[in-house]
């Protein structure tokens, strides 16, 4: 197992290298450049050129890439072109809100979706099953921002129970944190609940047809034990896979929710950086997201061995 983990970690290096090259080239070959944004409306072409030189954007692409890789090798993601702050500082400022939102969303989604999906499979073909599936289809179809605005209208503006926007750290008080995180969590969870519930239903449904389930029932196991002890555990591999993918999606994909609830997270940071062509931030964040994807996949592989003893590396 340890050699497997070690091999996987070593394998991340070439993957990250390819990602770094791809991101770098994609940015440099796409139109627009930060110098013209910085120079603003009053600038002449000469001003823009001077700024490009100052930022090192006039150097040959190979030189620019070499400089960046040299920085990365020293664990330095560079300095934001606009704010003049280290990219690591900017990421650190935004990491907590995104991680907290991801954590609450994932917890809430799993707690709701897995029982819901298992229930739907257990009661397959009944009104319960249909109700869960209708919810799942609706969850997939409802745009996040529509749900977000609807929840804000009802719970913030009409009932005045919760704030419209913002983020409070749990380290500054649990109650303000919960008040601010509830609506974004519910908004973001709906699609994940739909996804996880469907996968759980399909997996459990498949497992419930297996011979060992029939054997368990024939031996007199209660339905509860059959479902929880035999069916759900054996159906867990695809569920865990999808939950793992959900984690990766959450880290980089919460931008709409962050915008609707004005949460200063990583999703907004990357979108703002793209709009301004702040290359060091974009490059740093995409590398980080790639690393998270790789890490999550590794974790999923490890979790497989815990839930299915047949899987060994």
């Amino acid at each position: 197992m340890f050699s497997f983990i070690a091999k996987r970690i070593v394998a991340t290096i070439p993957v990250m290298g390819v990602v770094a090259l791809f991101v770098f080239l994609m940015l440099r070959l796409s139109p627009g450049d930060p110098a013209s944004v910085i120079a603003g409306d009053y600038a002449t072409a000469a001003d823009i050129e001077r700024i490009r030189e100052q930022l090192g954007l006039s150097d040959p692409i190979v030189v620019q890439f070499g400089n960046w890789i040299w920085q990365l090798m020293r664990a330095d993601l560079g300095i934001s072109i606009f704010s003049n702050l280290p990219v690591t500082t900017l990421i650190a400022q935004r990491l907590e809100p995104t991680l907290m939102l991801s954590l609450t969303t994932l917890t809430f989604s799993v707690l709701v979706a897995v029982p819901l999906g298992a229930l739907a499979a257990w009661k397959a073909g009944t009104w319960i099953d249909r109700a869960v599936m209708i919810f799942a289809v609706a969850g997939f179809s409802l745009p996040v921002f529509v749900l977000g605005y609807a929840l804000i209208y009802e719970f913030s503006l009409a009932l005045q129970w919760l704030p419209v926007q913002g983020y409070k750290s749990p380290f500054d008080g649990l109650l303000p944190f919960l008040r601010h995180i509830i609506l974004p969590t519910v908004t973001l969870s709906v699609i994940f609940i739909a996804l996880f519930a469907r996968i759980t239903r399909a997996s459990v449904l498949e497992v419930l047809e297996e011979d060992y389930i029939r054997t368990a029932r024939a031996k007199g196991q209660t339905e509860r034990k059959v479902l929880l002890g035999h069916a759900l555990r054996n159906a867990a591999v695809p569920i865990v896979t999808v939950i793992g993918l959900g984690i990766a999606l959450l880290i980089g994909g919460v931008v709409v929710t962050e915008s609707v609830y004005n949460i200063p997270g990583l999703g907004r940071l990357v979108v703002d950086a793209i709009l301004k062509r702040d290359y060091p931030i974009i490059q740093g964040l995409i590398l980080m997201f790639s690393f998270v994807y790789i890490l999550v996949n590794l974790m999923i592989d490890i979790v497989y061995t815990l839930i299915d003893p047949r899987i060994r590396y």
Binding site: I152, L157, V164, Q165, G166, S259, N262, R268
Partner: peptide, 18 residues
């Protein structure tokens, strides 16, 4: 200064006295 990327959220925050 709290920047809002979304105009509708900004409007709601003003209405809600935030």
């Amino acid at each position: 200064w709290v920047y809002f990327p979304d105009q509708t959220t900004a409007m709601n925050a003003l209405i809600n006295n935030e």
